[in-house]
Design a protein around this nucleic acid. Structure first.
Lengths: 253, 253
DNA sequence: ACCGGTCATGCCCGTTCATGCCCGGTCGTG
DNA sequence: CACGACCGGGCATGAACGGGCATGACCGGT
């Protein structure tokens, strides 16, 4: 196994599990701890991991509350399936907007290498994953970066989205329902999402079923703005039907 | 079998198996390892494969940039010392601009946790390192992202820098000399650096001594624009004195 | 058919890389 | 505050690398 392969795998393990430790990695890959330390150092220098005594934690973590880590990994499966399903909605050779959020980050990671696209995003983790994808023309939307979500917000971001027109926007929401629309806890972030939605001809909402019925502080649109919702099978058939009656197509991955 | 045929086949094998190695390819095709290396180099240059020690991996399979880590190992020591020395130039509680480049990334990683600063950058790696630094208000400059440097360039970036005013800009250059000023290989990137330099009251150039005397395609300023140069001890005392005569203070870390 | 030029390949050899081992220093936990 | 785990630098080693050169095949023009 080559060093970069091992490092890639370490990175994956770190992201999945929220942490890795030197000794078990050494065992896992059948190399000495020194080698693992070197790998971790390289990944740390590349800004992908944060080194800690005894191991490392992923640097790009969107959500680093320890108690949420477990829930995060259990939802990982749904999010991966949703991201996979979203691939089918990519235009053949056009422009897409990718919102911030862990599902979007997974979508970015899942883009096949032969993809040819123009991508616009205000999410740092999404940008980091796409920056070296050879087929992708990446445009970064600037702005003040919120620590919690690592997404750019405020004036620069709003203006940038106001100046472009994309084929599809893939957006995430912390809560969605027919009654209360699309909501998220932060006002500034909601404003950016609204601008992103307005900049696209077609809007695809990626949200696992646990988000359904939730409502948060800031609303950035109604379900009527959403052309397609991709969620998981946890959404009940009745809810699905209700949403479909509202004009939103629903895919349950 | 012709070389392009062989390369095509190597590419297919790499994509099928996820990896190839020099020795078995040499055996497989009944040629020497040198020939295979040349093939792999060609495919790497074409962006179809990623070369690793001992073989190659299909492009896009790794979602990080080994190139970045690799470049960091060159003159890593000097760069670390330069970054450390640059810490002394940070304002107590003001606004700084951080350019793209491995030395700047080191600087970002070396910021003490208790630092309180506003940071503006158009570099993705720098932003990734600072995004979760609690004391830092991070402002991301958007734009088209260049694959090679992971830095934002073009209209959005230029306009953003045109709208701000910072206490200090820390910039990097691929080449610097009293005669030819500050140069870099890419025009778009040079334009952004120029804008960053213009947006700051004080300009600090971080460049290891191997950059001295080099000149590249695009010039973004003269040494007269630089208030302070931080470099390593590889810069000869005569060169140091010559630069100092030009009005640029020099620190050799 | 001849001939200079280019290209692909092979061979040689000094250099670099990845890894393992060792040892003195540091961390953090009890 | 003491001890064990962890860290990082230094060194050794074998594999891989890559630049330079030679050889022979092919090509295009005369």
């Amino acid at each position: 196994m080559y060093a970069p392969e091992r490092q890639q795998e370490i990175l994956r393990l770190a992201r999945d599990g929220g942490r890795v430790d030197v000794v078990s990695l050494a065992e896992e890959f059948q190399v000495t701890a020194e080698t693992i330390r070197r790998d971790l150092k390289a990944l740390d220098r590349a800004g992908l991991l944060r080194r800690v005594h005894g191991g490392a934690i992923p640097a790009g973590r969107l959500d680093f509350e320890p108690d949420l880590a477990e829930r995060e990994t259990t939802a990982a499966d749904e999010k991966d399936r949703i991201a996979k399903a979203a691939l089918a909605e990519l235009p053949a050779d056009g422009t897409v907007i990718l919102d911030a959020g862990s599902t979007l980050a997974r979508l970015a990671a899942a883009l096949p290498p032969e993809t040819s696209l123009t991508v616009v995003t205000h999410s740092l983790p999404v940008a980091a994953r796409l920056a070296d994808h050879p087929g992708i023309q990446l445009h970064l939307v600037g702005g003040r970066v919120r620590h919690r979500t690592r997404a750019a917000v405020d004036a620069w971001a709003l203006r940038a989205y106001g100046e472009i027109r994309a084929d599809v926007a893939f957006v995430a929401a912390n809560g969605f329902s027919a009654e209360h629309g699309l909501t998220t806890p932060d006002l500034a972030e909601a404003a950016v999402k609204r601008a992103a939605v307005a900049a696209a001809r077609r809007v695809v909402l990626l949200a696992d079923s646990s988000k359904h019925g939730q409502e948060h502080f800031a609303r950035f649109g109604g379900l009527g703005d959403v052309d397609l919702l991709i969620t998981d099978s946890g959404l009940s058939p009745e809810d699905t039907a209700a949403l479909a009656r509202g004009g939103t197509e629903v895919v349950r991955a």
